[in-house]
Design a protein around this nucleic acid. Structure first.
Lengths: 230, 230
DNA sequence: CCGCCAATAATGTATAGACATTATCGAAAC
DNA sequence: GTTTCGATAATGTCTATACATTATTGGCGG
């Protein structure tokens, strides 16, 4: 019934910070004062403040005290959901069509020199083309993919379920559909599309490099920043 | 010199999880076993595991034990730099031109019912139009902006320096430039552009709503995920 | 007036123990 | 067999204390 005391303390300051009662840069009471105020031990206070610090709401400086963090502007959380799950969540039928599959050894880029499986295909939502995808998967890092049925499961989904990755980056750009892409997407050449290029690694080993071109009118990326980070 | 013991324990399991040695669903040793293994008290182990649980790497279940979390929807960190700083970092000259400034009370959306300052203008890099921006700023939440010189400092930059926000979301889409936008950007209508729409709040009070349309050929968003996320 | 240094006030980490909570498991009762 | 229910093994929280670390502050000497 009673919420944990540490949680109570955490929420107490979180509320004040979010409401602006405690402005950025303001100093919080010392741990001693807080433990007197709430009648608990210092460890409990410390854990509550540690949680707030981890969430980026406060900054703790030895000898100086604890302060409300100035909002850090530059990073937001970009959700990168699995396409199959995303489409399913919208109540549409998802399908992936594999168009091409071969083995290559590219000479440049992220997977340079590694033998790789090259697959390209189209993602459909309710039988409407949503995105074209062109992907390289390192056969050294992911030998199992050679045996996978990539018609039944899109390569991205397969990788998500079978291969943990530790590092990734994405470039997001807008471009006009090339004639080939336009044909696959069922739009006119030059139609604005969202292009996501992503590279992933496991440790230092490259896993995959994918380029997805989405119909601009049927896909959007959303990013979020906030204390409700959960 | 010696790293904190709790940190050592955290890294020990983090490495094993990221490397795949501990596969998703696998069970970690009990806290008792870990404290025996590292020769420390249970609180230390508990704090290390709590940190991993907060980061979403493990899941702890009473009576049952601690398990490697199944890979969730992966989220990445999207860098959203201040445009002025971004352009400066590229070694180009940044300029903002304010085209329009008035006061409105919109009837719908994020700022519905709030009197707001409406500003629109163009961002330039080396005198080349990079993006058009259309922005509403709540006058209730940010009264000071009425007195700001938004020719000297772009509204986004001004807000960044003067107003803390606690929550934000962004929608990223691709679209063709409208005739008006095309004129301002110096491109042909229909040219693919990257559109970022962002809303920010402080607590539950809306602060600003901005729509930025970037030339597709001169801007890209970059997102990153990795243990270097600290 | 300036620079150095030591006292100090704050957080950082850790210990050893206690009791609370809860899902699971196994045995007893039906 | 099936259900119920209590024992139990694990995590969850908290206390009281100790010592480490570090940035600030203020005093002392040049």
């Amino acid at each position: 019934m009673t919420p944990p005391l540490g949680e109570t303390i955490r929420e107490h300051f979180e509320r004040q910070i979010l409401a602006g009662t405690l402005a950025p840069g303001a100093r919080l009471p010392t741990e001693q004062q807080i433990m007197a105020q709430f009648g608990c031990s210092r460890m409990t206070v410390s854990k509550a403040l540690t949680a707030l610090a981890t969430a980026g709401l406060i900054e703790r400086r030895k000898r100086a005290g604890t302060f409300v963090a100035r909002p850090r502007v530059h990073s937001m959380v970009l959700e990168v959901p699995d396409l199959a799950a995303l489409v399913a969540a919208r109540g549409q039928a998802y399908r992936y069509r594999l168009d091409q599959r071969d083995t290559v050894t590219s000479g440049e880029g992220h997977l340079a020199g590694h033998p790789a499986l090259h697959v390209s295909g189209v993602h459909f939502a309710d039988d409407r083309a949503m995105a074209v995808e062109d992907r390289l998967v390192s056969l050294a890092a992911v030998p199992d993919i050679a045996a996978a049925d990539l018609n039944a499961e899109a390569p991205g989904t397969w990788l998500l379920h079978h291969v943990p990755w530790t590092e990734a980056d994405s470039r997001i750009t807008a471009l006009g559909a090339s004639p080939a892409e336009a044909l696959l997407l069922g739009v006119e050449a030059g139609t604005p599309c969202l292009c996501v290029e992503r590279r992933t690694w496991r440790g230092t080993d490259p896993i995959t490099h994918v380029r997805q071109v989405f119909r601009g009118d049927s896909y959007e990326l959303v990013a979020h920043f906030g204390p409700g980070a959960s």
